[in-house]
C-alpha cells in the first residue's frame, strides 16, 4: 500500500449512552478509494464528521499526511486539503452556484481581506481567477449553464454535483463523500461512478466513500471497511468483504443480502 494520507487510530465517539463509534481504525492510502459501509445507524456519518472535524472524538487519534490533526477544528482541516460532502446535501442556499464554489476557494486566496474591502486590483484579479476556475469546474461537471442560478433552482441530482464541484474547488488531497448516490436515479448513479473515478485518476484525489449502494462500492473501492454498531467488523477487498459471513450476519434483517446481490 502507498503512504497513508489519512489514518484514524482507535477512534471512539459517545453520545450520552450511545457509543456511535467504538475503537475503530481505518486508513486511506494516497490515491486510494476506500469504502466505509455498514447498516443504518452503524456510525458511518459519525466517523465522517469526526474525520472532518465537525465532531471531536472521545478517544483516538487522526493523522493527516502523517501530522496529528485530532485537535484541529474543521476549517483548519479543510485548509490542509480535506474536502467533504454531506449525507443530507448542504449548500449555501441563498447564493448562486458560482458563489457556492467561490466560497470553497476563499481559504486559498492570498490577497488580504482589507485589499478585498478596498477593492484593490490584487484582490479583484484573484477573485476573477477564482471565478474563471469555478466556471471551468462547472463545465467539467456539465453545470456551466447554471453558474448564475441560485442553488435552490437546481434538481437534487444537480445539487449533488454542485457539492462535489465545490469540494474540488478547494483543491483537496482527500475528499470524504457521505452517500453521494443517495437520491440519484440509476443512470445518474452510473455517471457518479465515472465521475468519482475520474476525480481520483485525473486529479489524484484520495477518497473516503461512505455508500449504501453496493454497486458503487464494488465498482470503485480499492478497500472497504465495515462498521456495525460503531465497531469495525471487517475490512478488505470489496468482493471478499461482501461474502464475509460476519458482515452478512450484521446485515441480516436490514436487506443487506438483497442489496449485496443486486
Amino acid at each position: 500500500m502507498t503512504a497513508p494520507i489519512l489514518e484514524a487510530r482507535g477512534i471512539t465517539k459517545r453520545f450520552g449512552g450511545v457509543v456511535a463509534v467504538n475503537d475503530a481504525s481505518l486508513t486511506v492510502g494516497k490515491g486510494q478509494i476506500v469504502g466505509l459501509i455498514g447498516p443504518n445507524g452503524s456510525g458511518k456519518s459519525t466517523m465522517v464528521n469526526l474525520v472532518s472535524g465537525e465532531l471531536m472524538p472521545n478517544e483516538g487519534t487522526f493523522l493527516f499526511n502523517g501530522t496529528d490533526i485530532t485537535s484541529l477544528p474543521s476549517h483548519r482541516r479543510a485548509r490542509l486539503g480535506m474536502a467533504r460532502s454531506f449525507q443530507l446535501l448542504r449548500l449555501f442556499h441563498s447564493l448562486s452556484v458560482e458563489d457556492n464554489l467561490l466560497l470553497a476557494n476563499h481559504m486559498r486566496m492570498k490577497a488580504s481581506i482589507a485589499a478585498s474591502i478596498f477593492g484593490r486590483s490584487s484582490a479583484r484579479e484573484e477573485e476573477q481567477r477564482a471565478r474563471a476556475r469555478a466556471r471551468e469546474l462547472l463545465a467539467w461537471f456539465d453545470l456551466q449553464d447554471f453558474a448564475d442560478r441560485p442553488v435552490s433552482a437546481l434538481s437534487i441530482g444537480q445539487q449533488r454535483m454542485v457539492e462535489i464541484a465545490r469540494g474540488m474547488m478547494s483543491e483537496p488531497s482527500l475528499f470524504v463523500l457521505d452517500e453521494p448516490a443517495a437520491g440519484l436515479s440509476p443512470p445518474n448513479v452510473d455517471k457518479l461512478i465515472q465521475l468519482v473515478r475520474r476525480l481520483r485518476d485525473e486529479f489524484g484525489v484520495s477518497i473516503l466513500l461512505v455508500e449504501h449502494v453496493m454497486r458503487v462500492v464494488r465498482d470503485l473501492c480499492d478497500h472497504v471497511v465495515v462498521l456495525d454498531s460503531g465497531v469495525k467488523i471487517a475490512e478488505g477487498a470489496p468482493d471478499a468483504v461482501v461474502k464475509d459471513p460476519v458482515v452478512i450476519e450484521a446485515y441480516i434483517g436490514t436487506g443487506w443480502k438483497r442489496r449485496a446481490q443486486g
Binding site: E54, S74, H75, S94
Partner: peptide, 18 residues
C-alpha cells in the same frame, strides 16, 4: 460573502475552510 455563508449554514462554512 463569508458572513452570508455563516448565515446560510455555519457547519458548511467551516467545512469549506472559513
Amino acid at each position: 460573502r463569508e458572513w452570508v455563508a455563516i448565515r446560510d449554514d455555519e457547519t458548511l462554512a467551516s467545512a469549506v475552510g472559513l
